[in-house]
């Protein structure tokens, strides 16, 4: 069998799995549909009860508020579909973008600086993937530790403070966060482009299909000739790149980067969106569309609650309860054998 044949076999295998899943739709609704329905119900509820909620302006605001979360989540989704987890994402996002802001005071060109920042993010991604694939440390601990190291190195070597600010003349850069194109703010556009690219990558390319195979059954994937270790590294690189893009978007939006964001609950929000959208943590399932749906539900909830002037702590409690429900539903829809589970398999 040639490599091409093997690849086709793998593709057929995951396509079969897909059609199998489609059959399941008839029997019980997929999580994606449930979430979409919930989002619609919430939307209608807020639209009726809150004045100004359903306006075009507010919808754009809502999309904009979830753009960064959405970019991070699409990156995370790739890793999770490959049965991994990337807790270092926020750290990479904060340090790479803050470093870019710091470098902008030097006389390097913006393009060079951007490549440096992206390069830093990719190095952390490769490190993550290498530790997970070759040393075989469970991704949970590997990425937790690399997150600490990345943040520490940033604070120690790359940055001079907790916050980083762009110099005064940085219109090109700030356009990425504050510009408006075709009536849509740049962050929303960036989110849509990232989501679209990753969607096509996952669904239409051989490597993308291989990531599903990797997450579904790593041993089987290895047996049919997929080089699983480089593939694992690739997923973490994609996640790190998404983190970099999200960081740049954030920094350009508020013209500063607060690296203390690492100690926030942002990474939990990312996991929330991913799990909510039906990307099972046991790997091999879900897609970018589900992630976008999950992000929109979170966006609607947060936007509505903010307008209602609900305390941010209550918002957090609401988020936690929603996430818990999503995990329970995930468990019901995709039961797994906890007797064969390994630690770090979430």
């Amino acid at each position: 069998m040639s490599r091409q044949d093997l690849a086709e076999t793998a593709e057929n295998a995951s396509l079969n799995q897909n059609s199998y899943a489609k059959k399941g739709w008839l029997k019980k609704p997929s999580q994606e549909l449930i979430v979409l329905a919930t989002a619609l119900v919430c939307f209608l509820f807020f639209a009726v009860t809150l004045t100004g909620f359903a306006s075009f302006g507010n919808l754009v605001t809502m999309l904009r508020s979830i753009a960064v979360l959405g970019i991070l989540s699409t990156g995370m989704a790739v890793v999770v579909i490959g049965r991994g987890l990337d807790l270092s994402q926020v750290s990479v996002m904060a340090i790479s973008s803050a470093w870019v802001l710091t470098l902008m005071s030097s006389d390097m060109s913006l393009v060079t600086i951007m490549f440096l920042g992206l390069g830093f993010a990719l190095v952390v991604g490769i490190l993550n993937g290498w530790i997970v694939a070759f040393i075989e440390i469970p991704p949970l601990f590997a990425t937790l530790a690399t997150g600490l190291v990345c943040f520490g190195v940033g604070r120690w070597v790359l940055l001079s403070g907790v916050h980083a600010y762009p110099p005064k003349e940085a219109a090109d850069f700030l356009f990425l966060g504050q510009g408006i194109v075709f009536g849509l703010p740049m962050p929303v556009l960036i989110f849509l482009v990232v989501a679209g690219v990753i969607h096509v990558f996952l669904r239409r390319t051989t490597i993308g299909r291989h990531i599903y195979g990797l997450g579904d059954n790593i041993l089987a994937a290895r047996l049919i000739g997929i080089s699983v270790r480089p593939l694992i590294i690739l997923t973490y690189m994609i996640s790190a790149a998404a983190a970099f893009i999200a960081g740049i978007t954030t920094a350009a939006t508020v013209a500063s980067m607060n690296t203390e964001i690492v100690n926030s609950t942002l990474i939990f929000d990312v996991l929330l969106v991913v799990v909510l959208g039906g990307v099972s943590l046991s790997g091999g399932r879900g897609g970018i569309v589900s992630v976008v749906v999950g992000a929109i539900l979170i966006g609607i909830l947060l936007n509505g609650m903010t307008i209602l002037n609900i305390n941010s702590d209550v918002q957090n409690i609401a988020k936690a309860v929603v996430l818990l429900a999503a995990i329970i539903v995930d468990r019901r829809l995709h039961p797994k054998d906890e007797e064969t589970d390994k630690q770090g398999d979430h």
Binding site: I131, A145, T146, L148, W156
Partner: peptide
């Protein structure tokens, strides 16, 4: 910074 780096490295080595 260095404390964080050390903590992360120790964790990686230990695991």
């Amino acid at each position: 910074g260095p404390t964080l780096v050390m903590q992360g490295m120790i964790m990686l080595i230990a695991v």
